[in-house]
Write a protein that binds this DNA or RNA. Structure first.
Lengths: 191, 191
DNA sequence: GATTCATAATATCGAACGATAACATCTCCG
DNA sequence: CGGAGATGTTATCGTTCGATATTATGAATC
């Protein structure tokens, strides 16, 4: 996706239109503006993210910690796989999160805040139970997102530096296993 | 920095010149092109990164694992502090790492490859000694960089979501401690 | 078949971009 | 003092941008 690859300013409505075999003015016809197109794209990506989690049990902090830990582990695996399959979302997030802007606040309020809150609350429970690595709940969201998504956000650099293909299913699975093992060392009976 | 905030395409030589109270053509006078200016900026940032590590012992894999572990721990803390003080470097890296381009390969070959190789090699030793978390050496670079730098790269979003100020010294120290504890759980006598 | 309306395609606008040419100013050395 | 070379400043070029006005097309309704 153009917004993910070049950022909002770097992406041109002409090249976006070209991708779908259309002419540039069609974008201002079907959407009000470039901003509105961007918002629709972000909504769509977060909708796909929600779909990827739709069949998982919610991260209920009233649950016993071991069960919650297994739910979080499965959610982490899902997130890693989603980041590998759709790196555009994390690219847009990291692009927009760098500066205070209307777009950043729109995205944070509309989409990110709920995920951030759920993860933070779940982590608080896991920490108290000693299942989770000793990370501050107010920081763990950033550790999870950063560690899980960077090799896919920067897949081109992974290929250039090591020759690995980070989208290979085995690479993705290995990364998901690594993330779970690192973040939930106290979780018994690996899955 | 303009390149870090908006990416290469989004940054304009006019606003860069304005920052230093100059006129836009001065950039093409003192540098050959916008590309050359970008390269000089990246060289400068990586130079500062190297300076931040100048007084540390090298990550010698022939060292005994516990000593090497303490050296890696100190290097991790330095990296977290550098990412907090100079988020521009990691912003540029994550911007440029998304797509295969001449700029990405220039940066990977000239600067990133050495760091990547050193970390990977050191991690291999630490893994064998059981000091490090069970992360694949070929992946740990991305986990370290992603987890360490994201809250500073996206500092604006951290503020918007939690109200925390990630550049507060106590926040940075806490994050560094979290990263070390998470990655090197087997390291005895926490400093 | 004529009318109507949603969408596609073209033309074009003003603004901003990187780059360069042209001109002004300053500094330094004789 | 005066000329030379480096640097500052202005003017402007061709291109690309997002947006909009205008015209063309096609499908549905009567």
């Amino acid at each position: 996706m153009e917004f993910a690859a070049k950022g909002f300013d770097g992406a041109s409505t002409r090249s976006i239109a070209e991708r779908v075999d259309a002419f540039q003015p069609q974008i201002n016809y079907h959407f009000a503006s470039k901003e509105a197109l961007w918002e629709a794209a972000v909504d769509h990506l977060f909708g796909m993210l929600a779909n990827a989690f739709a069949d998982l049990p919610p991260l209920d902090t009233a649950e016993d910690p071991i069960t919650l830990g297994h739910h979080v582990a499965e959610a982490l695996r899902r997130f890693v796989h989603f980041a590998a399959a759709h790196p555009e979302l994390n690219r847009i997030m990291v692009h927009e999160g760098t500066a205070d802007s209307d777009r950043m606040r729109w995205m944070a309020d509309r989409h990110v805040r709920a995920w951030h809150g759920n993860i933070t609350a779940a982590w608080r429970s896991l920490r108290e139970a000693g299942v989770a690595a000793p990370l501050d709940p107010d920081r763990v969201y950033w550790v999870i997102v950063g560690a899980s998504s960077l090799p896919f956000v920067n897949a081109a650099e992974v290929r250039a530096l090591s020759g690995d293909e980070p989208t290979d299913p085995s690479w993705v699975d290995g990364h998901a296993d690594d993330i779970v093992a690192m973040l939930l060392p106290g979780l018994p009976t690996p899955r």
